[in-house]
Design a protein around this nucleic acid. Structure first.
Lengths: 332, 332
DNA sequence: ATTGCTCTTCACAACGTTGTAGAAGGTGCT
DNA sequence: AGCACCTTCTACAACGTTGTGAAGAGCAAT
């Protein structure tokens, strides 16, 4: 059905390799020949077979992006920006969802699918420290987020600790002293929750405010529902608080909903700050103060890094940290 | 670097074709041979080269999903569900963003990338009626949404007219008589905006309420910001209204924000209904009444349809319409 | 022992492309 | 004229897989 180099060659009266040379902009082709070939290409609607090209060249010009769940706004917006950044470099993006499941994440790393793409951007959530060695794979890999530390693998991360500290300091600066947390993961150290908690405690310490464990609202998943439930649990516990630091915006919106439903005014009674600067905090009621963790830059740098790694596997592993900022809105 | 059939064959002491037969579960392989080959496969960590397989077999087991913007919750959730549905059938999903740009959509249809995937799920927004013939492409294609009608191409759509009518009737049933629209596209007929407006007018007609053009709040893009701006414009125009039917949830949330900021109570002064049933309306303040247009079923049926089309190109074009329902929450 | 059958394995030829090496033709220099 | 050197084009051999057809092995029936 579809035309091949041979079909074009036959029509143009040249060898199929000459057609290949035209397609690949090989310089030593006589202008008249080039034109004849191009006309034949146009006439037949020839398009290169990318499987064959990929087999022969070892390049597919496709990368994978593996995220926990695309329906979480943070990952949807990350994927959006990764796709844009990849497109600027002529790459297409294949998206895998791991549902923050350790087994699925491990399967992914060993999957034959990986051989179809030139590289992988991987945002692991379920993997534990003991799985760290599993990320030593043949396919160029860039890890996103800070869940895993493996010195030999490229990372592009946000500054979780510093940004969380800044978020907490923002609330402190506005006079809040009893700052509850929504989204903590008890016992976790290296994950986003662990690091953000670390930043929170650092800010409290610096301000001379004692850490009160009763202010922690654990939430395994970072969805709206879990944010609402954590806030309800804090209210029900009777602990006194005048602010909430939610570990992402989705949790924050859920928490805010629960607070308002319980009759608390935001920000008058309880100030709320989120984390991620996703679009849905821009028009919430009230609008959500949040931390912009540099998602756009993460996407850009991640694609840039994987492209470099694809081009040269021998360069030293890169660990990129992007900037963050506080976005103040009505909720604080 | 990576092991091939030949490497495995050498280690197992068989021909490379026998290894291929083992990999593909060809039945006539002696159990002892099969085991020896499987051990060699495990030892070398052999994984088939998918480019080679794709070149030889003509199948890549990958499909493309083309959407306007992944950061819009509707499309993020659609993509999430398409990926899940595809995975159940052993397919991976490559995502393209068209930014509702006609030229990009046309480019996509002619792209060589398409030859790398077995099929395409395409949600066009920018194409016009005169581009309809462009969707006659070699790659199996399923159109999502109702923007284009081309009898020869598979479609999976929501019931825009009926669902919009039901949304309007929901507001009418709650005693609202001055129902504003947010998100209309002046002059459009076959797009989502045109069809939803048609449903709105049908409901008004049936209720004997005259259509008032001043109640239309146009919004080209269906983002939160445009929803807020459209609502502000309606308020500024001085036209009286006691309800808003926003053509998607994102617009609705933006509009609700603007209404509340202007001192209107939702739903007491103005009832609001959205469209799409995306996650962000579940915990908004107030929570958002909306239309569930059957997104999950659209994803499932779309993947099912493209799989059928890939298997047999000669079957009659399918036009699938999925069910809808009203999801009532606090905003109405 | 030979024939005919089934089970098992294999050699070979694609799929459509790019890289290598070299041939054919032309041009400029000595 | 002879040589070297460009430019232009081509033939051939991969890349790693699957489909086809046929060969070899084993066994029952003749």
């Amino acid at each position: 059905m579809a035309a091949t180099l041979h079909d074009v060659a036959r029509l143009a009266g040249v060898s199929f390799k000459t057609v290949s040379n035209v397609v690949n902009d090989y310089p030593h082709v006589r202008p008249s020949t080039r034109q004849r070939v191009q006309e034949a290409i146009a006439q037949l609607g020839y398009q290169p077979n990318l499987s064959a090209r990929s087999l022969r060249s070892g390049r597919s010009d496709a990368i994978s992006l593996a995220v926990p769940e695309l329906r979480l706004p943070y990952f949807a917006e990350l994927a959006d920006e990764v796709i844009r950044a990849a497109e600027r470099r002529g790459l297409v993006v294949l998206i895998e969802q791991t549902n923050r499941d350790r087994k699925r994440e491990l399967d992914l790393l060993g999957s034959a699918r990986l051989r179809m793409v030139d590289g992988l951007l991987f945002s692991p959530l379920g993997l534990t420290a003991e799985d760290a060695s599993m990320v030593e794979i043949d396919t160029p890999l860039v890890l996103l987020g800070e869940r895993l530390f493996h010195p030999a693998v490229d990372h592009v991360t946000m500054q979780n600790v510093a940004a969380a500290r800044a978020a907490t300091e923002h609330l402190l600066a506005r006079g809040r002293r009893r700052i509850a947390v929504v989204g903590s993961h008890p016992g976790e150290v290296i994950g986003s929750a662990g690091l953000r908690l670390q930043g929170y405690r650092a800010a409290l310490d610096a301000a001379g405010i004692p850490f009160d464990e009763r202010l922690l609202g654990p939430a395994e998943l970072w969805h709206r529902r879990e944010g609402a439930e954590a806030a309800q649990a804090l209210l029900a516990s009777g602990v006194d608080f005048d602010a909430v630091f939610a570990f992402n915006d989705t949790l924050a919106l859920g928490a805010m909903h629960a607070l308002i439903a319980a009759g608390r005014r935001v920000p008058d009674d309880v100030a709320v700050i989120g984390f991620d600067n996703t679009d849905d905090g821009m028009f919430s009621q009230p609008t959500l103060t949040t931390v912009d963790p540099g998602r756009r830059e993460i996407a850009e740098r991640a694609v840039e890094t994987v492209v470099q790694r694809i081009a040269d596997r021998s360069i030293a592993p890169q660990h990129v940290e992007v900037g963050y900022s506080i976005v103040q809105r009505e909720s604080s």
